[in-house]
Design a protein around this nucleic acid. Structure first.
Lengths: 336, 336
DNA sequence: TTGTAGGCGTTATCAT
DNA sequence: ATGATAACGCCTACAA
């Protein structure tokens, strides 16, 4: 069933059928009616390959997800899917390992699928600096700030990671904790991890609290297992930590389990705070204290900004989305 | 950059270029060399729309994911992505709500994307019975058994859900539990939920243990929140449950939290067992007892079966993948 | 082994 | 407002 068939069926010419189907002007109301009805009746579906071949572009929006263990991204993809489903675009989601170069991969996919725009979930600036110049369609980097990268087709929507981490440490210090360990990502590789790390340092400095990155920081991958391992490491150096800040909820979950395996109770013996605000956190025992990122807003603004760029040619912009410190059961005050 | 350009550049004709690019016979070694090199050098990328338009099909494999809250599917998609990445196919993942009709959606996507095959993650037989007849490409239903559906292009790879549930209850009974509540999905809507439910009944019957579906079964959606709510419900009817079997790990997590909120300890006051075997489970406190489905195998066999059908025209088949009961901290023996 | 040419289904540019 | 027709980039008979 092609538009040719539809043309034959309705008695109109293919040109008219095409115009009617695409809501173009210069089609009589009557023709439109007849054609649309015939199309509906015969279950006609436009051949997207032919269309795209002719138009030199797709209606695809690409989502590139980096780091598959990250639960947060799962939530985000879901939100994005829902948002895009209400538009005329198609979503293609591509997952890749944390080690891969997301920009190179995107470049490859650009040639293959000619998407209208790209949403990057995770990524690190170094890769962007090196290769993003070759990408010439609107993109949004989600969860990372790209304002210092001055590509005019790269927007970003993120949580203020430095500030979020700073507030987490502030909170712990406010509860009386003076010996705090931090588990995060590899700060030499991931910008997010670097920012969160810096936020921690800033808070420690402001409060005059000692923090020795060498001993008190563990840089790992975001996974339950790595949170677990890192915590066991920390416990080995027998410093009298009263709190651990894990810069991702998945890490924090591994942390709590590791503490338990070492005979320590949370929060009685040691407090644990995460960051992300996964829905799961509020169902854990103890409920996980965390800094919640507003996933829905992150997703919503990202999609809006991307569509604005695609449809209106809106210039790149960089937004920050609010976060919220949730002091839940896994932390306690140790001021007497 | 088209094959025409490549032809001009190398001095060969488009036909030869096309053949060389597609590894067809009847191309001299020299021509192949020259053309492939020129292609690599100029970063040539074949226009997939033109190719597919001509060939009347894509190289796309579609994954239809039903029920976004299901963590298990997240793991599975990741596995599948890795498997497919090593082939010449492209993966397109489509997520949808639990309420939608996955078969109708797939039908729509078939017309749009003309995939070579479909992997369904989740789904219910009723939808298949009603509409699957219109789908004429190889499909694999993953996690559901479709052997009683006799479509010759529909295979399935699943865990034996009835047996898995039966074994879970067997285990609890073996530990001395005689008053057990079950939280599962809506068994009138989901086949998996029905099978698991039946497995429970079977075990109860075999052991001569009373089970009143009216009181002792809660049919809900698979989510933390629903597990939580269902448990509060169960606790209202003040039956002296010593164990709760949640037929999905996410439910079990909600259950444990609800019990805690009602002042009950797990497993001291009540045992909890899940089903799925999410990696998360072993990091919880207490570690979640569960029946582990072998996700990697489920994914691997599904992909293999699908590719066999696509490439060799292998007939539909129905496989079952092993599971494993993991008695972990959230259950305890109450025989004295 | 290589070249030539027709056509896949659509859109867009012309006439009419 | 409508109809005819030329592309879009590729594959594939078929001819050479």
């Amino acid at each position: 069933m092609t538009i040719k068939d539809l043309a034959a069926k309705t008695g109109y010419a293919v040109g008219t059928v095409s115009r009617a189907l695409n809501n173009h002007p210069n089609v009589s109301e009557r023709a439109r009616q007849v054609i649309l009805e015939a199309a509906a009746e015969s279950g006609f579906q436009l051949n997207i390959n032919a269309k795209q071949l002719k138009q030199h572009h797709s209606t695809t929006i690409l989502v590139v997800v980096k780091g598959t263990g990250n639960e947060l991204f799962g939530e985000m993809v879901e939100s994005i899917q829902n948002l895009i489903a209400q538009t005329r675009y198609q979503l293609v989601v591509d997952y890749m390992d944390e080690d891969e170069n997301e920009v190179l991969r995107a470049l490859q996919l650009c040639r293959e699928k000619k998407p209208l725009g790209i949403l990057f979930l995770g990524g690190n600036n170094r890769n962007f600096i090196r290769s993003f110049g070759d990408i010439d369609i609107p993109c949004v980097l989600v969860t990372n700030d790209a304002s210092m990268l001055t590509f005019d087709n790269l927007s970003s929507v993120s949580t203020d990671d430095r500030e979020a981490a700073r507030r987490a440490i502030d909170t712990l210090i406010g509860l009386g904790h003076g010996c705090i360990a931090v588990i995060g990502g590899d700060r030499t590789v991931s910008d997010i991890s670097r920012l969160r790390y810096e936020g921690c340092l800033q808070s420690f400095a402001e409060h005059g609290i000692a923090f020795d990155p060498q001993q008190d920081y563990q840089g790992v991958r975001f996974s339950y297992r790595d949170g677990y391992r890192a915590t066991r490491e920390l416990l080995n150096n027998s410093r009298p930590y009263t709190a651990i800040f894990a810069t991702a909820d998945v890490l924090a979950i591994g942390t709590i389990r590791a503490l338990r395996d070492c005979g320590m109770r949370v929060p009685e013996d040691i407090s644990v705070m995460g960051l992300d605000g996964l829905p799961l956190g509020s169902f854990l025992v103890p409920q996980l204290a965390t800094v919640r990122q507003t996933v829905s807003l992150l997703a919503k603004r990202s999609v809006e900004i991307l569509l604005d760029s695609i449809e209106q040619g809106a210039p790149a912009c960089h937004e920050t989305v609010p976060f919220e410190v949730l002091s839940r059961e896994s932390v306690r005050s140790i001021t007497e």
